[in-house]
Amino acid sequence: NIAKAIINLAVYGNAQNRSYERLARFVDTVGPRLSGSKNLEMAIKYMFSVLQEDGLENVQLEPVKVPHWERGEESAMMLAPRNHSIAILGLGSSIATPPEGITAEVLVVTSFDELHKKAQDAKGKIVVYNQPFVNYEETVKYRLQGAVEAGKVGAVASLIRSITSFSINSPHTGWQQYQSNVPKIPTACISVEDAEMMARMSSRGTRIVVTLKMGARTYPDTVSFNTVAEIVGSKYPEQVVLVSGHLDSWDVGQGAMDDGGGAFISWEALSLIKDLGLRPKRTLRLVLWTAEEPGGVGAEQYYQLHKGKISNFDIVMESDSGTFMPMGLAFTGSDKARAILTEIMQLLQPINATNLYENGGETDTVYWVRDGIPGASLRDDISKYFWFHHTQGDTMTVQDPSQMNLCAAVWTVVSYVIADMEEMLPR
């Protein structure tokens, strides 16, 4: 009756709310944890210590090189047609403006196609993207590539509508990518409200002038660590079921949702199994990735370091899409493996989280999934996830202890059963 015992302990028993309370203590103590920052270093030391105190095995730090970019003072002031302070968040890896800022007329576009059509008007201007929100995967390309596309046509800066379906004048940050053959221009996100207002002004033929100031700095790559802990398998200790979340976050809010929740339910999975006195046949390995936000940097180096033992990896699991009300798992793997996962998900009927969806790879596990290792990620109610994503609003206040209990139960039942079954999942 192991699945029921896990659910009872996580949801109703002594471990109730534990992942929430651990996460609250962590984020209130450390705060946000940007790649390369002192805060992230402190967070890793903190986790190294508490995982040992929790009695987990083989607690270790695996060094990796990560980007180090720091936000400086930043502001955007509309000067024409009226004075208005524009809320901005500079994007990761953006260059700074000169100290006096960049003052220029604004060109508003709604798509890259429109920008290319108006390329001759863009020279010397600040390009404002007011692209509609379709979905995250589709729309995030404006944040990733907005500066490059604007730089190609001679713009002096880009301001990008935040990637969200809902806003209370809240800018959302994120990483962006320059291209080596394109002039680098400062780039930041603005709120949906300001993007729409400038689009309305522009459509009326109103001339808009903005002064943008950004004090960002990029430093050489620095050393960080993936944090690892295990429950060593009883029968096939060399074989691994990997559960994970990422420890780094953005430098705004607390990173409680992205991805504190995912990291802490992954820790909770090992704690619950240990508390129940269980030891699965194969090793259950917790990995808390570093530097996911700049593009899965810690995970890529982990893959390079460990891919020689890929035949021992049973499944890679990552929770990085919130820890709200769970609905089940997303899974990538063979039809035979999917059939087995479908059976395992039935163990979660008591908490109504039995669904199995497609596309189980996340940023940090995708390297393994591309090589044919089964991959799973938590699927939960993300209807509000992107409201808070990469904003000052990503705090403990958006987390719910009872929902985290349920997520921990899903994560633990699935990872334990896969780790304890006689056979590995078919590739």
């Binding site: 699945a3 035979k336 059976e343 163990l347 006689e422």
Partner: peptide
């Protein structure tokens, strides 16, 4: 009559289902 590959898989899968049911 020897089991076909599909029969073998079905047989193995039934065993796996029983194994998983043992956790419930």
């Amino acid at each position: 009559k020897p089991l076909s590959q599909d029969d073998c898989y079905q047989h193995a899968f039934e065993e796996i289902k029983r194994e998983i049911a043992g956790y419930s």
